[in-house]
Nucleic acid binder design. Structure first.
Length: 491
RNA sequence: GGCCCCUUCGUCUAGCGGCCUAGGACGCUGCCCUUUCAAGGCAGAGAUCACGGGUUCGAAUCCCGUAGGGGGCGCCA
């Protein structure tokens, strides 16, 4: 049988990184097995519709390359693929349940379930503790309405919802692909609402109907649905349908150990993209959150992932999102980029003031070093403008055994040397420095160090000292040399 | 609170009864590279496998309990 997976986001206005991982796994599972990947929009909450958010979904899938075979924009044999356009379908299936007694109309007020239990009748009794909270949200009173009472209410035009009728005897079990056998007592299962007062289905109902009608073979979703799945299983049974394979995914946690949320930092794909993370790096990273290939490989291109991915190697424990490791992986992906692509990526991050600098060359120089392009402005700002307040102590470096006096002498020698160079290019500068170091019996590092400090005013630079000199141009380089000597002389 | 799930270095993870004196990666520390700080290469520190009982000749791996964490209990998904 052909594998069919689906991604079913609701239009919230942004692509949550956790949802993206769900999409990725579903997509990988389909692609890996030559199946189909379907996009379905779950917009059944009229109060929460967000303008333009469907576009965000399409755009996210496009930029990440998670292409779908069927969906609202592409059509397909089992549409429509937008839940708000499927209302007659839900109505029809709710009626079936009503007719078979697996569902009933509930005329209770929205707030009624929150009332204190009246004169202590038909409350589920548990543990004998007085004042104990009810286990279920709804006490099921409308399930006991007679046919005549229902008719009367209907005639009065009372609004109602449709609830699932769940026998409170016995247990319900299913086998989750990741978590194994799950069994719950039916008395834990609420008579959940299937159809809301406004006629829209709840997620709880729509997901079952749609997954079945759309021929989904593998339901992949976050494990927050694990505890409600028994109710869905009962729905499948009520309809007499086989149920699909359930693959619940462990959560992605934020740094505090709570579910990844906006409070703790970035959760939207766009947040990462805006900072210069590559889509393939983000995908590579989140693929590893909860899944591993069983080998020591961590760097994956998308084709690699398709080849290697296997749902059997998805774990159970939640994973903490670590942006430091994401950044490292992003650096790996940046290194693998063709030079022009890297430059394109970096170009948007160069600050003003670099007009005199050959940016293409700069890009080539820093490509091996950039992890997050959003760091570029502060990495290269010294090229535009030297922070002249840097401390002369920076010239002292224990590894290269440099001292202030030594650096001063070196810079003093370097100035005429560089000023007199016939050509100003990387090789010429490097050769002259190498020759100078050789002649003085100095290690090259001992010459490069003071040059770097004088040219940049900082100990760590995104490129070598020679590249800096070249990028700066002779005039500015010599000016900075003078400035450095001034500092050392004065100190 | 009743219910469901989870628990191996700071973090992501390998491990599915003996190969584990627990392996890899990020991060951290040190060394090397002497076309340089960085990058790269190499090395090191870092986990009494949440805890307590069992089962077994033998347990991170199986069973039971405890603790901690998460989920969920919505006319949200």
């Amino acid at each position: 049988m052909e594998i069919r997976t689906r991604f079913a986001p609701s239009p919230t206005g942004y692509m949550h990184i956790g949802n993206l991982r769900t999409a990725l796994y579903a997509w990988l599972h389909a692609r890996k097995n030559g199946g189909k990947f379907i996009l379905r929009i779950e917009d059944t909450d009229q109060a929460r519709l967000v303008e333009d958010s469907v576009r965000v979904i399409y755009e996210s899938l496009r930029v990440t390359g998670l292409d779908h075979d069927e969906g609202p924009d592409k059509g397909g044999p089992v549409g429509p693929y937008v839940q708000s356009e499927r209302r007659p379908v839900y109505r029809e299936y709710a009626d079936k349940l009503l007719a078979s007694g697996h569902a009933y109309r509930c005329f209770c007020d929205k707030t009624e379930k929150q009332e204190e239990p009246a004169q202590g009748e038909d409350k589920p009794q548990e543990g004998g503790e007085e004042g104990g909270a009810p286990i279920l949200g709804y006490d099921g009173r409308c399930s006991r309405l007679s046919e005549a009472e229902v008719r009367a209410n209907l005639d009065k035009g009372l609004p109602f919802v449709v609830r699932q009728r769940i026998e409170k005897e016995g247990t319900t079990s299913f086998k989750d692909f990741i978590y194994g056998d799950i069994t719950v007592d039916n008395k834990q299962l609420d008579d959940q609402i299937l159809l809301k007062r406004d006629g829209f289905p709840t997620y709880n109902f729509a997901n079952v109907v749609d997954d079945h009608l759309m021929g989904i073979t593998h339901v992949m979703r976050g494990c927050e649905y694990l505890s409600s799945t028994p109710k869905y299983i009962l729905l499948y049974k009520a309809f007499g349908w086989d149920y699909p394979e359930h693959i619940h995914l462990p959560h992605i946690l934020g740094p505090s150990g709570k579910k990844l949320s906006k409070r703790e930092g970035s959760v939207a794909l766009s947040d990462f993209l805006n900072r210069g993370y590559l889509p393939e790096a983000v995908l590579n990273y989140i693929a590893l959150l909860g899944w591993n290939p069983g080998t020591e490989q961590e760097y994956f291109t998308m084709p690699d992932l398709v080849k290697t991915f296997d749902v059997a190697r998805i774990g159970k424990a939640p994973a903490t999102f670590d942006e430091v490791k994401l950044a490292w992986l992003n650096g790996q992906h940046i290194k693998a980029l063709p030079a022009e692509k890297a430059h394109e990526l970096f170009a948007g991050f160069y600050p003003a003031g670099l007009e005199s600098v050959d940016l293409k060359r700069l890009s080539a120089h820093i490509q091996g070093k950039v992890e997050k392009p959003c760091d570029i402005p502060q990495m290269v700002s010294f090229l535009a403008k030297l922070d002249e307040g840097y401390s002369p102590e920076l010239f002292v470096n224990k590894k290269n055994k440099t001292t202030r006096e030594g650096c001063l002498a070196t810079l003093a020698d370097l100035k005429p040397l560089l000023s007199g160079l016939p050509a100003w290019d990387y090789q010429a500068i490097l050769d002259s420095l190498t020759a100078y170091a050789g002649g003085k019996g100095l290690k090259i590092g001992a010459v490069m160090w003071p040059l770097r400090i004088a040219l940049s005013g900082q100990t760590v630079t995104p490129t070598g000292a020679v590249e800096i000199a070249e990028l700066l141009g002779r005039e500015e380089a010599v000016r900075r040399l003078d400035l450095g000597m001034g500092k050392l002389g004065a100190g």
